[in-house]
Simulated scan of single mutants.
Amino acid sequence: MTENIGAFGGKNPRRSGTERVVNTPLPTAYGQFQAVGYLDHDRGDEQVALVHGDIGTENVLVRLHSECLTGDAFGSQHCECGEQLSAAMRAVVAEGAGVVLYLRGHEGRGIGLLAKLRAMALQAEGLDTVEANLALGLPVDARDYRVAAEMLHDLKVRSVRLMSNNPRKREALTKYGIEVAEQVPLLIEPSENNITYLRTKRERLDHHLPHLDAVAHGS
């Protein structure tokens, strides 16, 4: 913990790390969850863990879901994010226990909402998602998963079965001390609006998307 100087010259503590702030029942269309709210003091972001059932500590079914306003709230078919969030919530309810971490600050793989929309405009002109970010002078993926690991540590989770097609999420959790016992595919049927985006994720970002092999390349 660090200290800063207050308005009248006194020292006030400035907290760091991730703090649990609230825990409340959250009934959803998928089932009953506990919404555990956190404050990331380092970034100022408010975060939430959706916890279903008695999760225990080992081999917990977990999804790290990056915030995506266009997909999660508006049902955009440019990506598969909204459908992945729904599928993850259904999966943990079917399992009887699990956690969905909704990671704010991850919009557009960490570049922010407006930058993501600018990148989407470039994609509409023919660039892929990687090329569009680079054309804007932005990183291809700026996400950090420190807060996700800290939330899991607070929930006493030691090892997870990670619902993800992205190997970087597995690597990040391992880096922050969470064992990944298994990576569980979260495959969404592609549409004509997102097939190019999904192929780019597989070919340029190493996402494991074997189901795309069944889709004709001209689609």
Results as ranks from 00 to 15, higher is better:
Met1Asp: 06
Thr2Leu: 14
Glu3Asn: 08
Ile5Glu: 10
Gly6Gln: 09
Gly6Tyr: 04
Ala7Pro: 12
Phe8Pro: 00
Phe8Met: 06
Gly9Lys: 11
Gly9Ala: 07
Gly10His: 14
Asn12Gly: 00
Asn12Gln: 07
Arg14Met: 13
Arg15Ala: 13
Thr18Lys: 01
Val21Asn: 04
Pro25Asp: 10
Ala29Trp: 01
Ala29Val: 13
Tyr30Leu: 03
Phe33Gly: 07
Phe33Ala: 03
Gln34Lys: 10
Gln34Pro: 00
Ala35Pro: 03
Ala35Ile: 10
Tyr38Val: 00
Leu39Gln: 09
Leu39Lys: 13
Glu46Ser: 12
Leu50Arg: 08
His52Ala: 12
Asp54Pro: 01
Asp54Tyr: 00
Asn59Arg: 15
Val62Gln: 09
Leu64Pro: 04
Leu64Arg: 03
His65Phe: 03
Cys68Arg: 04
Thr70Cys: 09
Gly71Glu: 03
Ala73Pro: 00
Ser76Phe: 09
Gln77Thr: 05
Cys81Asn: 08
Cys81Trp: 10
Glu83Pro: 01
Leu85Glu: 07
Leu85Ala: 06
Ala88His: 04
Arg90Pro: 00
Val93His: 07
Glu95Asp: 10
Ala97Phe: 07
Gly98Val: 08
Val99Ala: 11
Leu101Asn: 04
Leu103Tyr: 02
His106Leu: 05
Glu107Tyr: 05
Gly110Leu: 08
Ile111Lys: 08
Ile111Met: 04
Leu113Tyr: 14
Leu113Ser: 01
Leu114Tyr: 10
Arg118Gln: 14
Ala121Leu: 08
Leu122Asn: 02
Glu125Gly: 00
Gly126Glu: 01
Gly126Trp: 01
Gly126Gln: 05
Val130Ala: 01
Glu131Arg: 02
Ala132Tyr: 07
Ala132Glu: 09
Leu136Trp: 06
Pro139Asp: 07
Pro139Tyr: 01
Val140Tyr: 00
Asp141Met: 11
Arg143Val: 09
Asp144Asn: 15
Asp144Phe: 01
Tyr145Trp: 14
Val147Asp: 13
Ala149Thr: 13
Glu150Trp: 03
Met151Gln: 11
Asp154Asn: 13
Asp154Trp: 08
Leu155Phe: 05
Lys156His: 15
Lys156Tyr: 02
Arg158Asp: 02
Ser159Gln: 09
Ser159Val: 06
Asn165Arg: 12
Pro167Asp: 12
Pro167Arg: 13
Pro167Val: 08
Arg168Leu: 11
Arg170Ser: 12
Leu173Tyr: 08
Ile178Leu: 12
Ile178Pro: 12
Ile178Gly: 06
Glu182His: 13
Gln183Gly: 02
Gln183Glu: 14
Gln183Phe: 02
Val184Met: 13
Leu187Tyr: 14
Asn193His: 15
Asn193Phe: 14
Ile195Ala: 08
Ile195Phe: 12
Tyr197Phe: 14
Leu198Thr: 03
Arg199Ser: 01
Thr200Pro: 04
Thr200Ala: 09
Pro210His: 06
Leu212Pro: 05
Leu212Asn: 03
Leu212Glu: 05
Ala214Asn: 10
Val215Arg: 03
Gly218Lys: 07
Gly218Phe: 06
Gly218Trp: 13
Ser219Arg: 14
